[in-house]
Simulated assay, not measured.
Amino acid sequence: MTAPCVVAGLTAGDAGEALTVQYAAYLAEARRYGTTEIPPLRETVAELAADLQRPDVRAFGAWVGARLVGSVRLRGGGAGTGTGCVELARYSVAPDVQGHGIGRALMERAHAELAAGDVSWLVTGARSDENLRLYRRAGYAETGRLVDSAGVELLRLERVAPAAPTPS
């Protein structure tokens, strides 16, 4: 990958491209768990577009040139207040550009929406080692386990947004 990625807001008009990236990213997870019934692979363009229009959703995409290569959504109210709780949802990076910092850039942009004390949470497959490494490096810790509608064991991870560093 030669061009830098640009992270910016995602709109309902980007839903088709975002879903294409989401499907590509989650197909690897589907193979890992032996099912294509995981919720991110069942989402439709209309559902994704509707989600992007919700007032409590902030979404970001990563572009390399004109190509959307990743996206993430923050769902929930109160973020930016220091008392909010938001879900980091449908975090996706196209498989052919994974490992180039795009996921980290998306996560940093999403985290920039949070005030000190805000809690962000996410779920990921219990056997998704690469995802777990990234999330733990970003400060997420396991807070529970559940099984989704496809029978996949998921870990719930949370992170409390830190206070901004004080200038020296």
Rank of each mutant, 00 (worst) to 15 (best):
L122R: 06
D129F: 08
T35D: 02
A18N: 00
E142K: 07
A49L: 02
A62F: 12
V7R: 01
M107K: 03
V57N: 03
W63H: 13
L134C: 07
H111L: 14
T81I: 04
R133T: 13
I38Q: 12
A141Q: 11
F60A: 03
G76N: 03
E113W: 07
A59W: 00
A24N: 00
Q98M: 03
G80L: 07
G13F: 00
R73C: 15
A28H: 10
A79K: 12
G103H: 12
A15F: 01
A59H: 02
S71Q: 12
R54C: 05
E108P: 08
V21Y: 00
R73Q: 13
G139R: 11
A116V: 06
G82E: 05
L41W: 01
A25M: 00
T81R: 04
C85T: 11
L41Q: 02
L132H: 09
A116N: 06
T83R: 14
A138K: 07
S92N: 14
L114D: 02
G80Q: 07
Y135K: 04
R67A: 15
S92M: 11
T11I: 07
V86K: 02
G34Y: 00
D51I: 09
A15Y: 00
A12N: 01
V64Y: 04
T83D: 12
A126T: 06
Q98R: 05
L106I: 07
A12R: 02
A110M: 02
R67I: 13
E37S: 13
R127T: 15
A79F: 13
Y135G: 04
E142P: 04
A115Q: 09
